[in-house]
């Protein structure tokens, strides 16, 4: 029975997911936050941190769903922040595209009461190195630098209702317990990342 349910979950984790996959080495990056402070993935990993990446666009309805209608991201971060987990939101939107630019994101940081840093990647190089497709698109990186989870935040891809399973919370719990992540890959959902043309 468990085999069947696992198979079913794997089938749902479907196609067209270029970029990193679970087990890959996470591409290093250094990106500035809205205050100009640089955040280096390798430095966090050297400190033994587990890193969660959330692709972000403040004007995407799915980001609003998880930051305004509910507070999925902040609440998930708060559950794990004292357990060595760093959460970084990354906006890979190009200048002039929806939700891009420092000013818009400063306002969003305030409106959404973000509990974690928001990094800007207007060239989209970091987003594309991970294969980030949607906002949100979630990645969990173990302290050894390997990808533990990629995909959706939860199992409801609508713009207005919420799933029963928080995939990121499950992945973090497994990583912290030293166990394999039961569902290391799901299909991300949301708006497309607004990369440069």
């Amino acid at each position: 029975m468990k085999v069947l349910s696992t198979l079913a979950l794997l089938l749902v984790a479907a196609a067209a997911l270029a970029g990193v996959v679970p087990g890959d080495k996470a591409p290093d990056f250094v990106l500035p936050d809205l205050d100009g402070k640089e955040h280096s993935l390798d430095e966090y990993l050297d400190q033994g941190k587990i890193v969660v990446l959330e692709w972000f666009n403040p004007d995407c309805p799915f980001i609003k769903k998880h930051h305004l209608q509910a507070h999925t991201m902040n609440e998930t971060y708060e559950r794990f922040r004292d357990k060595g987990v760093v959460w970084l939101a990354i906006n890979s939107g190009a200048e002039g595209k929806q939700g891009a630019g420092r000013e818009r994101n400063l306002q969003a940081r305030e409106d959404y009461d973000l509990a974690f840093p928001l990094l800007l990647d207007p060239a989209g190089t970091v987003g594309q190195s991970y294969g980030a497709k949607t906002t949100p698109h979630m990645f969990v990186i173990k302290a050894d630098g390997t990808i533990a989870y990629t995909g959706a935040i939860d199992d409801d891809n609508s713009a207005g209702t919420f799933g029963k399973t928080n995939h990121v919370a499950e992945a973090l719990s497994a990583v912290l317990a030293g166990e394999p992540v039961a569902q290391p890959e799901t299909r991300p959902y949301g708006c497309s990342v607004k990369y440069a043309d």
Binding site: A15, L17, A18
Partner: peptide, 11 residues
């Protein structure tokens, strides 16, 4: 492809 199916390298 349908939404459920094998994972693809680069559709």
């Amino acid at each position: 492809p349908a939404a459920d199916g094998p994972a693809l390298v680069d559709l």
